[in-house]
Computed example of a mutant assay.
Amino acid sequence: MTTENKTIVQRALAGLIETGDVDALAALLSDDFLHHRPDATTSTRTQWLANVRAALTPIAGMQVEILHLLSDDDHVVVHSRRKLPDAGPEIVVVDIWRIDNGLIAEGWETIEPSARAAANLTWWAPAS
């Protein structure tokens, strides 16, 4: 099952990153898909796909390097480094996808600009 789930996520990402085909991505999402962001924002399938479509122009030509692709039962985790074209910022992204009945049913996403990573390593340190 975990290999099949990884394949579903790989197909979804490859279709979007390589071709910008949002409809191919949509075909792999369940009707009740939910997407969660760290700011506690949750989007429905329709809302999230609209956001993805709106982001396609700014991210066209983005380079994506998959650093880790892990699966456990019905969850798949993708850890990637992404660089926008034309000297745009580099970000590190962790996506967690939950698969149900062969479709992506839920997703969580955390994005960190690489340039700010060192500052974020000391968030727990007491103030001087």
Rank of each mutant, 00 (worst) to 15 (best):
D31V: 04
P58E: 10
E90S: 14
W97L: 01
H68L: 01
A14C: 06
E4G: 07
L34V: 13
S114Y: 05
D73W: 02
K83G: 09
D73I: 03
A26S: 15
P38T: 13
L56Q: 13
D73C: 06
G88H: 12
H75E: 01
L67S: 04
H35A: 07
R37Q: 11
L56K: 09
S43I: 01
S114G: 03
E109A: 13
R116C: 10
L16V: 09
V77H: 00
N51R: 15
A117F: 13
L67E: 08
A50N: 12
A54F: 11
D95T: 07
H35C: 06
R98P: 03
A115Q: 13
N5H: 10
D23C: 05
L69N: 05
P89E: 13
D32Y: 03
T19A: 12
R81S: 10
A12P: 04
H36K: 05
V22G: 05
W97T: 00
G15V: 07
R98A: 07
F33H: 14
T44A: 07
N5P: 00
D73L: 03
F33S: 03
V22W: 07
W108L: 04
T41C: 06
D86P: 04
V93M: 03
T110P: 02
L29G: 06
F33N: 02
S71Q: 02
F33Y: 15
K6I: 01
I91W: 05
A50S: 13
D23V: 06
R82S: 08
A12F: 03
F33D: 01
L49Q: 11
T41E: 06
H35D: 02
L121H: 14
S114A: 12
P89R: 11
S43C: 10
L67P: 02
L49F: 14
H68F: 02
V94E: 01
T57K: 14
A115M: 12
S80L: 03
D100L: 07
N5L: 01
M62I: 14
V52H: 08
H79P: 00
S30V: 05
D21Y: 11
E4Q: 09
S43H: 14
N5I: 00
S80C: 07
A119F: 15
H35G: 02
A14K: 09
K6Q: 04
T19I: 08
L49W: 13
S80Q: 08
S30M: 03
T44P: 06
Q10M: 04
L25C: 09
Q10S: 12
G20R: 09
A54E: 14
W123C: 11
I96C: 00
L70H: 09
H35Q: 15
D32P: 06
W123R: 15
Q10V: 05
E112D: 09
D32E: 14
P126R: 15
L25I: 08
G61C: 10
H79Y: 08
I91Y: 11
W108A: 02
T46Q: 15
W108D: 00
K83T: 14
